[in-house]
Design a protein around this nucleic acid. Structure first.
Lengths: 260, 260
DNA sequence: TCAATATTCTCATTTTTTGAGAATTTATTT
DNA sequence: AAATAAATTCTCAAAAAATGAGAATATTGA
């Protein structure tokens, strides 16, 4: 292992449980000589990806906060969706969390979340946490709208799966037909998820808008109302995205810019 | 340039103005052959630091959201300060934004912000945005409490500066004596900043808690009240930090863990 | 001040990276 | 559906950089 992989490996050591590392510990965990790790860490510190905390302990650095802000400010999905989430939690009239989640490479991740004022529970889905692909309304509604090729890559080809796989395929087909997905206690016991797709192929955006609420407080009419709310909010976000992308605000290669 | 620098250089291309890049554009901007940039970008995409959006356009990737969450969850300063900020904006009884900011390498950056409910203005200080070292209460109060050696490195030695430099030195000494700093319209016109230091040397934390409010709405007694609020909140956060760090929750090198 | 520990440095060797262009894949247009 | 254009990957020899062991140095705490 060398080059970028080395940097990756060091950063991946940091997680919720182990948020502070000494160089000898990293060296030990990675099976790489200390002198090499010192060099790698020095580069990462210089780039702001790690910071020297104290007593030779290192933590994740400010670059992540900085890039995260950039992402929040410039991600078209975040821009288009923030307002919608606000409206959704306001109009839900029940304790809930609204999420905008998105397929990134091969995982689903929430990119914006907003809780209603009086919400005491916490959803496992939260901004920045990778979520399982095949569980929860949020993820399923995304899977259901994936191009066949991509879906096969993510969950395997239709044939080479057992009964559970076939069931998932059927469920996804059903979700796709309905245009939304409702689940209960799939991610968090006692919590229901209601999700609708936000698909803007032209922008390469495959996402979902979802609502998490206490399942025991939902009767059928409530549920229908919330589904309607989520579905319409999701299509609104998709519409806004399409509109926003019409004049592509991207940096073109120089030779193209010159032509203008 | 090579190795880590190449990755850094690519990532640093992304900012508020240019949030989406094609490979030819990057190649052009960096003066590096396309084939090399393609390789670099491929690595960054694999690591989640970039994502292929559409039409060969790349954006910042989900890894930043993920690491940012990790940072929020595990940074002792964030953990100790979140509640305090909440209390501060609640007790300020005026539209305001409360910030917890910190010295990272050689820049000041806000790591948590919270606005009071009825706050319409926005402070330039916001989570994830690097701020000037020598302007604004938030930064000054941090500078004022830096060890001499570090301060010299950041703003230059006492002798080799002009009149402005000497004035800054005097101001910092004064702030240090008082234990807080109040400024007006230094960062944003019409906004006042009130900051107090959060220093926990044992943890390598040099930070500040600050409040940004509409200067025209503050009379002297208001200002005194808010200074008191900020100063006491800051010392509370520092206290909590010291307490939290007593049993050092860090990953020790293996040979130390074995001894236990 | 003195230990103990952390960090950087040195340098020959090994391993990558690099870049130019060809080859291939992918998307778009006709 | 073929043709065109663009994007992306591949190839390979030369050049550059990373590696690791240990020495040298800096930093820190007692």
């Amino acid at each position: 292992m060398a080059g970028f992989a080395r940097f990756q490996a060091v950063l991946r050591l940091f997680d919720e449980k182990a948020s502070a590392w000494t160089v000898p510990a990293m060296s030990d965990a990675l099976g790489v000589p200390a002198s090499t790790v010192y060099r790698t860490v020095r580069d990462l510190v210089a780039g702001g990806f790690l910071e020297a905390a104290h007593e030779s302990v290192y933590r994740l650095g400010s670059a992540f906060i900085e890039y995260d802000r950039l992402l929040r400010l410039t991600d078209p999905l975040v821009a288009a969706g923030r307002g919608a989430l606000h409206d959704v939690v306001a109009q839900a009239h029940t304790p809930c969390v609204a999420l905008l989640s998105r397929l990134y490479n091969d995982q689903v991740m929430c990119v914006v979340d907003e809780a209603a004022r009086d919400t005491s529970f916490r959803s496992s889905y939260e901004r920045g946490r990778p979520m399982p692909l095949t569980q929860g309304a949020t993820s399923k509604v995304i899977l259901a709208h994936l191009p066949a090729r991509l879906l096969n890559r993510l969950i395997g080809a239709p044939k080479d799966g057992g009964a559970r796989h076939a069931a998932l395929r059927r469920e996804l087909a059903d979700i796709r037909k309905r245009g939304f997905c409702v689940t209960a206690s799939e991610i968090d016991a006692g919590l229901a998820g209601i999700a609708a797709p936000v698909i803007v192929r032209e922008a390469g955006i495959i996402a979902s808008l979802s609502l998490v609420a206490d399942d025991s407080r939902l009767d059928d009419s409530q549920r229908r109302r919330l589904v309607l709310l989520v579905v319409s909010a999701a299509s609104l976000v998709a519409e806004e995205l399409r509109y926003a992308l019409t004049p592509p605000a991207i940096v073109e290669p120089r030779h193209k810019m010159v032509k203008q």
